[in-house]
Design a protein around this nucleic acid. Sequence first.
DNA 1: CGCACTCTTGAAGTATGTCAACTCCGGTGG
DNA 2: CCACCGGAGTTGACATACTTCAAGAGTGCG
Lengths: 263, 263
Amino acid sequence: MQQKVHQLFAEIVDARYPRSGCAACDLRDLWCLPKGLNGDEFLQVDRIINRRKRIKRNEYLYHAGNPFHAVYALRTGFFKTLISSASGMEHVSGFHMAGELLGMDAICDDRHSCNAIALEDSELCEIPFSELEMLGRKIPALQHHFHKIMSREIFRNQLLVVLLSGMNADERLAAFLVNLSQRYGARGYSATQFQLRMTRSDIGSYLGLKLETVSRTLSKFQESGLISVHNKQLVLNDLERLKQIAERAQQALRPDPQKFEAS
Amino acid sequence: MQQKVHQLFAEIVDARYPRSGCAACDLRDLWCLPKGLNGDEFLQVDRIINRRKRIKRNEYLYHAGNPFHAVYALRTGFFKTLISSASGMEHVSGFHMAGELLGMDAICDDRHSCNAIALEDSELCEIPFSELEMLGRKIPALQHHFHKIMSREIFRNQLLVVLLSGMNADERLAAFLVNLSQRYGARGYSATQFQLRMTRSDIGSYLGLKLETVSRTLSKFQESGLISVHNKQLVLNDLERLKQIAERAQQALRPDPQKFEAS
DNA sequence: CGCACTCTTGAAGTATGTCAACTCCGGTGG
DNA sequence: CCACCGGAGTTGACATACTTCAAGAGTGCG
């Protein structure tokens, strides 16, 4: 065991040989750990994490109501989270890609408030929350990092609120596609060509539209040459114009300039 | 100084004489401090808080873009927060009452992401964030409490998202009124009779409706005897039915029951 | 007292929802 | 391998809830 620790430490020191644990994880810069941890701190973090929780497509990571004891870092795969209201109706509250953290909404009352479902076979790191807090007390940088992640989650939701209450279908879809594009891009994948992991109905639920509207709007984008869709395969032909559409909502409601040109 | 500390401590021990500081604050159970702090911990918290920051009606507590260094606990008064998108459009992202915490969306990138504007003369406690983190490292209960508050903020926003993407105007307004009612109730005010602090336009922006729709819907509620409105003065005559309306959205989309009765 | 802002109400327009029919696709079993 | 099946997606016609535009009344602050 002691030997293993030494080996791990060596890997950290020589980062060219990442083989296992957090040191090996190429996602750690995305969110998981703050920069500038020293070797010892690194090991402490590494030790509380249960690696390799595997969830197959369509399986649940947790259900709403489940007792909360850990947050989860998504290593590979793709998730959606569903808020289910009292009487069983479900609403997609988010899509989650590798490098993102799930379960933070559950801290406030010690039980999960949504369902997390894998949209493809996935692998996660389970981080027991009380131990994360404990370690945060020892490692200020870790504590602050976690606060930033939670804050970003708040911010992210606020942007979604703006989208939902101020944008029309075109703008919502465009914003959604641009967002996906950026997230894929940040992970080293193509930012202009990727698979949609979710159904039209999921997208609609997330964006506050009906699936027919999503389908129609995608078709419209395709006709105008903005994108090419074939089932779930997507190519963004004109990312810049998509961005313009996504942000036009803001122009539209300016105090009092001349009217913006028709679309 | 030392003498003052002793005096304060005495006040804590004998809670019947709350005169100043956190010990005196009748809001502390709403969010500010976890239960079960001992006297010493209490004092430590008390010491980092700058009390009595006063903001007059229509003044800003902070602007989007301002550097972040503190969160604020609202002691008395009423705030709205506005997200301003790139090009100057503004969207009401929340209303905040005594006992709530402002500024948590700013942690993630060290600058405020929204504007906070007082809707009436207000008084706040300023809590320097680095010191709050520092104290969180010493006092586990405080740390955990803060995490819960942030998590609740995430959860709150998720509910808003559900409202915005799944509910019609009646349901949104009803949910909004019920929410205000509960928050006033929790603070010891009447849960059925209160002043709206914000304009119809603010409500509309928050709920993703136009101000005319807000006005019309309020009128409709009034005609049907649900509420009585006169300008900003509001009486909820039938809180139960308002709750039913707010939650009917959930029934409406159930898998396959018989259609719900017309409104 | 008056001006600006807020609110109310009406009439007409439109984006999105609803309902329905059909096609496409992937998986399963014969 | 093909046939079949159910879920997913597309498209059209129609319905409607909300917005937009507009006019006017009410309110409150300087």
